[in-house]
């Protein structure tokens, strides 16, 4: 009897021990994230000023800034979004609502799952061989935007599919019952209800693209850019221009990589400041994504 009691006590102790170990394991991740943010803030805070945001990169670390980098990031993201969002949503709709159950659909599905696991630098190699040298798009905003667009395509597709899958069949049957065609059903019922999930996926995908640098390094984007691309809106006729698409560029993560790979410590401070800006952008986007999901989940009750 006494043996049994000690046995139970030991088992209970081990159980408690694991609960503590588990909590600690969780905390390793959380604390690393905190350490990373605090480290960046301590190093980079002193460099964060208005002039840092409105200066071009420079040989002198104190004068260098991220103007061309954040403008480049916005332009590249614009191209990325225009590539990945329509293509991703359309693919998602096709696979969930239209695709027949056959081997070809299976191949498309497996293929998308596999694309999601391809290292980002491989997309860069593809872009280098195809966009830069075959299609002669150069080391431009367009090439970069397309590359990142293809990179996040699987994320958008998967998010779209998951959002559509959550819609009960009864909704579609109701639409068919009153004579709607397939597309009318999708347009008026499936898409509005899945908007929250799709939006979440798009934001997460774009936040991944914003921080991505490896594929852009591969297409040869690490250059000294101390000018802004031609503005899309012009003061003279025809008032808009697409010159910026073919302009060379730099983006925030590449500017940061450039600074961190220099030996001088003063440039490391700039890297930390750029990293802080980048971190705030990506974490905010992820926060917004979580909030959007929460908002739509609350609003729609079947």
């Amino acid at each position: 009897m006494k043996d049994l009691k000690t046995l139970i006590a030991r088992r209970k102790f081990l159980d408690l021990l694991f609960a503590i170990v588990g909590l600690l394991a969780l905390m390793v991740g959380v604390f690393t994230l905190l350490a990373l943010i605090i480290d960046l803030a301590l190093d980079g805070m002193s460099r964060l000023s208005l002039s840092f945001f409105f200066s071009y990169p420079s040989r002198f670390p104190e004068e260098a800034g991220i103007l061309s980098a954040w403008v480049g990031t916005i332009l590249v993201m614009f191209v990325t979004a225009t590539t990945a969002v329509p293509l991703g949503i359309a693919s998602g709709i096709y696979l969930e609502e239209y695709a027949p159950k056959n081997w070809f659909t299976d191949i498309i599905e497996i293929n998308i799952a596999n694309l999601a696991g391809v290292p980002s630098i491989i997309y860069g190699l593809m872009a280098l061989g195809l966009f830069v040298y075959k299609l002669h798009l150069g080391q431009s905003v367009l090439t970069a935007g397309l590359t990142l667009g293809l990179l996040i395509l699987p994320i958008v597709i998967m998010a779209t599919r998951e959002a559509i899958r959550a819609i009960p069949t009864s909704i579609r049957e109701a639409a068919y019952a009153v004579g709607a065609t397939k597309w009318q059903t999708v347009q008026d019922h499936v898409l509005p209800y899945s908007l929250g999930g799709i939006l979440t996926g798009v934001i997460i995908g774009l936040s991944r693209a914003i921080g991505e640098s490896a594929p852009l390094l591969t297409i040869g984007a690490l250059t000294f850019i101390a000018f802004l691309p031609d503005p899309p809106l012009q003061t003279h006729f025809p008032f808009f221009s697409f010159e910026w698409l073919l302009s060379p560029f730099t983006v925030l993560p590449i500017q940061m990589f450039n600074w961190v790979s220099r030996p001088q410590a003063a440039f490391h401070l700039n890297a930390a400041a750029a990293g802080l800006v980048l971190l705030v952008m990506t974490l905010t986007m992820n926060g917004v994504a979580i909030y959007v999901r929460y908002l739509f989940r609350k609003r729609i009750q079947w």
């Binding site: 960046l40 921080g211 961190v260 990293g275 980048l278 992820n286």
Partner: peptide, 10 residues
């Protein structure tokens, strides 16, 4: 979600 270049710095 943290950009990998930031992890590199870290």
């Amino acid at each position: 979600a943290v950009p990998t270049v930031v992890y590199g710095y870290f």
